[in-house]
Amino acid sequence: MNDTKIKITNLHKAFGKKIVLDGVNLELQKGESLVVIGGSGTGKSVLIKCIQGLLTPDEGSIKIDGQETIGADKKQQEQLHGKMGMLFQGGALFDSLSVWENVAFGLLENQKMPRKQAKDEAIKVLRQVGLGADVADLYPSELSGGMQKRVSLARAVATKPEIIFFDEPTTGLDPIMADVINDLIIDSAKRLGATALTITHDMASARKIADRIAMLYKGKIIWQGTVKELETTDNAYVKQFINGSSQGPIQVEI
């Protein structure tokens, strides 16, 4: 039985002279929730964007359901995107569209669902992320940061994707709202049976969401394991990161 959903081998990406990813190897099983942790600017967002084909890697291979994505043609790319949903770090809601049009975007544009039906569906998904039907006709700029995150989450899951990416879903939220979002992520992923890849610096969130955790440092995955293994690891880098200490092998360039 082969249940590998995403297989990343020897992935390299540099911007000019700046090497961001330097040989990343990572595998996600079907239905698994993997959390990638790592310091600011280590290339976590770049990693996700490479998987989605928003950035073109310099070298390496990314296979989704056994199919190579790098160099895939337009048709294949669009097909792949149909399988994926993404919660962007900054929300990336379309500010010219209302909340429900944002949530229903994939349904309207790709599945060609009638507007009335799409709106009902959007309101249903909004309710799942704890937002009432009254926000459906507002515009993203009229919402608070936490509400925008939830709308963004609703948009990511509305098309019922097989793979969902969450880029720092809890950053900038108060601890209670962060936990609400955690529950929503677990909940949506479970309901859809989706494979989830989450990026975060928030260790509480990571422990809660993850089946497995991987740490990205200097362009490589330097450690991976279950949440239990995380607590008992003697990897000095991981220990320093989860304890949030400035003393240790990780040197922050100031």
Binding site: E78, F88, L93, N110
Partner: peptide, 25 residues
């Protein structure tokens, strides 16, 4: 200004992930 804002706030990337071609849209 509109398209530039959409670019820097990743709305254009979001379009792509929703299987919509930004050139067409």
């Amino acid at each position: 200004a509109e398209i530039g804002t959409m670019r820097v706030t990743e709305q254009i990337d979001a379009l792509v992930t929703l299987s919509t071609n930004p050139f067409k849209y």
